Computed example of a mutant assay.
Amino acid sequence: MRRLLAWGADPDHVTKHYWDEHDRSFKVSVLAMAAGMGDLAKVRTLVEAGANVHSQARRGVRLTATQAAAARGSAHVVRYLLELGAKPDEAPAYFRGRTALQFAAAGGYIGIITLLMEHGANPNEPRCPLEGRTAFEAAAENGRIDTLYFLTENGVDLASDGGEQHKNAKWLAEQKGHGGAVDTVEALYVQACQKQAASRMGILEAEASFRAFPDGDLWEI
């Protein structure tokens, strides 16, 4: 690789490499390819030759380098790219795209999820327009029970979207035969709804107290 780069090869070259579950190829940059293999040495070589760690997923190019590394579970590559300034929540491709955190959730890589969130990634990032998954849905689809708990403990609120994530995640887990994930999704949703109801009750009680003592007499009791 070093010799090719020395001869003028483009470190941002895009090539067809990956195949999805329907045997359809899609394009990635050579940097994303190296990141997706977890090969930090090749990633460093490409970056030192001028490869752009900020390149975005776009039409025909489904993965950024950070997304590819997260999908692979290569925490050392993800950390290296983030330290160079790569965005932790770069937008996913339009079709079947995932953010880096959504890929990590699908793989159950809690360490990478934590690393991305420490750099500002949003665990509630919406799914891509076509056949996307939120982080919670991706974890459920792949039976990652520990990840489901981790996400709800770190900012994912299942009660804030009218139950959409709950329904999607439960259906995806059922389709893949992950009974434990189905039960976990349901339990976490019930827990989120109870928490929301308790919060609303507290607000209503506070409002009622304020109306009863509008001049602050409550504090004199």
Rank of each mutant, 00 (worst) to 15 (best):
L151G: 07
L31M: 12
S25Y: 10
G73L: 10
G202W: 03
D20I: 05
G73W: 10
D20L: 13
G162Y: 08
R79A: 11
F210K: 13
G180F: 07
N122E: 09
H17E: 14
P123K: 02
A6M: 14
L218Q: 04
S199P: 00
P92M: 05
S29N: 03
R127I: 05
A93D: 13
A140W: 01
F103G: 08
G163C: 05
D157S: 12
G162L: 10
F213K: 05
R72V: 11
A192I: 00
F103D: 13
D39Y: 07
E153D: 15
V61H: 01
D20N: 15
G132N: 01
Y18T: 10
A192D: 12
A75D: 12
G177R: 00
Y18L: 15
A65G: 11
A6F: 09
A93G: 10
M117L: 03
A187H: 06
K176P: 01
M117C: 09
K42I: 02
L31K: 08
A91K: 14
A32P: 12
E83N: 15
I110A: 01
K176N: 13
K170T: 03
V77E: 10
W219D: 12
R200T: 06
V182T: 06
D217M: 06
N154E: 04
A41V: 13
D89W: 00
N52H: 02
T147K: 07
A104H: 08
S209A: 13
A140F: 05
G8I: 03
L204S: 09
D157E: 13
Q67R: 07
V182N: 03
Q175L: 05
Y189A: 04
R144A: 01
P129H: 04
Q67W: 05
V14H: 12
T184F: 02
G36F: 02
T66S: 12
L172A: 11
V182I: 05
N154H: 15
F150L: 08
I110Y: 00
S25N: 11
N142M: 10
E205P: 00
A106C: 07
I203P: 00
A140I: 05
F103M: 11
V190E: 10
A139Q: 03
T147Q: 04
Y189K: 02
L101V: 14
